[in-house]
Design a protein around this nucleic acid. Structure first.
Lengths: 338, 338
DNA sequence: TAGCGTTGTTGAAACGCTTCGACGATTCCG
DNA sequence: CGGAATCGTCGAAGCGTTTCAACAACGCTA
């Protein structure tokens, strides 16, 4: 492999000049620049990442810690990852992928200066990783909201607002008894904050709008979904609106409702909280509050980069929920029909 | 951050001794080792990855190029990724994630010596990336089979054998007319080799077993699946066995069959080619040929590591298909019932 | 015309690690 | 008991960049 010295020699300039051509940190005259660039081209020169990292203390790599266990949210996770990776490339950075359970990896990549910054997904209310990365010298952005961010930046969908929007949508179209089919029990037990935030919004708005709301945890399996639907139908037969916040269970919930003779979009309104493409690939197009996973990933990277260049303070950004009406929701019993 | 020199000073030894303690490349006496380790511990020392890479020309990072576009195989891709990442950790390596379309990334990470080796997924028959990585100094393992591997190692499920196994299973249980519901048309147009290999096996075995086989491409959407099923039922009404090789379409195919009054597992046998967890999360447990995505990812890493340590020749490994009978397949019309 | 600020370029000192050759101290063998 | 092989440790030379201080050449201003 050609080195920067080879390039310098070929272009008839000093090593540092080549470096400055590459980095743009000092003015270089047009002819010199041209000679250097031609030499680079001719030799097929690529700066050695390790040498660069050593000299500049910058790796141009960010770490992304993602929950890779197979399970529930796979497509959603994928979208986060896609957002992070593509946006990172816009900033000329690459992404080192860490698995959620590789907690020691945090130490490894930060302590070993393998990365310039971190993005961590799927943050729990009391996440043990937060203090770890808070102590690192690299800036970190959390996707999700821990109880105590310890000075780290956070980004997420505003689930509390999403809960409110969902209930308000159902309430204003005449539903008086609604339910939430939510995350699997283990997610709730982990105190993943988004589930709790959604419920808070839900309940507050229910009070405000004067509707009842019943909450049912739900396993993502077909049988889990069936159980949840059956329980709901049995214990709260007056329900005419369901909010589903569980991508995995969504198709099975719809199947079960059909099996139980409920026509979604007619005598049962369903609002999903999920990515748009998931909402659209159900048996009927779902009214949904978009979970803009890819965007959130991109915003996370934007925030990381901001912190990387200058001493900006940490911030928390909650993206406003957007509800799109499609065919799965309709007027409820109390609707004023004109 | 503490450096190796700090550790050496604290332990009262030379720098190189510390290095040898860390790498184990030279014998170190027990007491010396102990002193060094204590110093490392006390100072919280972590070797600087860049410096290490520079001096040793080893990064302990491998690149993984994965198709991150949202779409069909998301869960499968995820399993590949999981397999690669976890197995890489077993070898003390981290994973740099590249997106499929970031072709220039190949040059960047190889030329810049950011990684020791590459793993590339979703290889097409005539993949433009293959010559690129074949020219790189880092070893590469392909997940999938290009027409010309150009000296690279490959690993994949033996789809040709899978085709044979699937047909043989149906044939021996008395089915005489079977069909394949396969990948989306765009996948076929890309000449993704697995689709073609599956079909080859299918057709050969059909000839051998004396059964007819009809092939239908299939979009992964609900409507795509419905169309495929309808076409099949219309143009080949005698079919009693279907092989589905399309994770995304599978649930919709089953739904449509149900809507069309076919009882899967009774008057229609269905064999899926997909990961086991997908087979199990359908409306009924599917007879399936496992697509062991995570295993394939692990094997890919094993092969990478083999090539990294010594001059082993390149190899191609095709994993033998395993068919597991569950509730979606049964005896066909020609079965000899005793 | 002396002095000054620009502009463009250079040389050399880091950056933190690995590894090779060397060397004193032991142990081994005949 | 002398020489050879082995063991454990060290010093120093890289690895390929970035970046800082310095400086030559130039046009300006006063």
């Amino acid at each position: 492999m050609a080195t920067i010295d080879d390039v310098a020699k070929a272009a008839g300039v000093s090593t540092s000049t080549v470096s400055y051509v590459l980095s743009g940190k000092r003015p270089i005259s047009a002819p010199t620049r041209a000679r250097v660039e031609r030499a680079i081209e001719k030799l097929g020169y690529r700066p050695h990442a390790g040498a660069r990292a050593l000299a500049s203390s910058r790796t141009n790599v960010i770490a992304l810690m993602a929950p890779l266990r197979v399970g529930v949210n796979v497509p959603v996770i994928m979208q986060f990852v896609t957002g992070v990776v593509t946006r990172a490339r816009d900033f000329d950075h690459d992404v080192l992928l860490l698995t959620q359970d590789d907690v020691s990896g945090l130490d490894r990549v930060t302590g070993g200066s393998m990365v310039d910054a971190l993005v961590m997904m799927d943050i729990e209310a009391d996440d043990p990783r937060v203090p770890l990365v808070a102590a690192a010298k690299q800036p970190t952005v959390l996707i999700g909201l821990p109880q105590d961010p310890e000075g780290l930046s956070c980004v997420d969908l505003d689930f509390e607002a999403a809960g409110r929007v969902a209930v308000r949508h159902l309430a204003t179209s005449g539903h008086t008894d609604v339910a939430l089919i939510g995350s699997p029990p283990e997610v709730l037990q982990r105190h993943t904050s988004y589930a709790e935030r959604l419920m808070r919004g839900l309940r507050n708005q229910a009070k405000t709008s004067g509707v009842t709301v019943k909450v049912e945890a739900c396993d993502s399996s077909p049988s889990g979904a069936a159980t949840a639907v059956d329980t709901l139908l049995a214990t709260a037969p007056d329900i005419t609106g369901i909010i589903v916040h569980n991508e995995g269970a969504l198709p099975h919930v719809l199947s079960r409702l059909a099996e139980r003779g409920r026509v979604v979009g007619t005598d049962m309104s369903v609002v999903a909280v999920c990515p748009t493409d998931v909402a659209l690939s159900q048996r009927i197009p779902m009214t949904s509050i978009d979970l803009p996973a890819e965007d959130i990933g991109k915003v996370a990277v934007d925030m990381v980069m901001t912190r990387l260049e200058g001493e900006h303070p940490s911030e928390t950004r909650l993206l406003a929920p957007v509800l799109t009406e499609r065919e799965s929701s309709a007027h409820g019993p109390a609707a004023v029909v004109d």
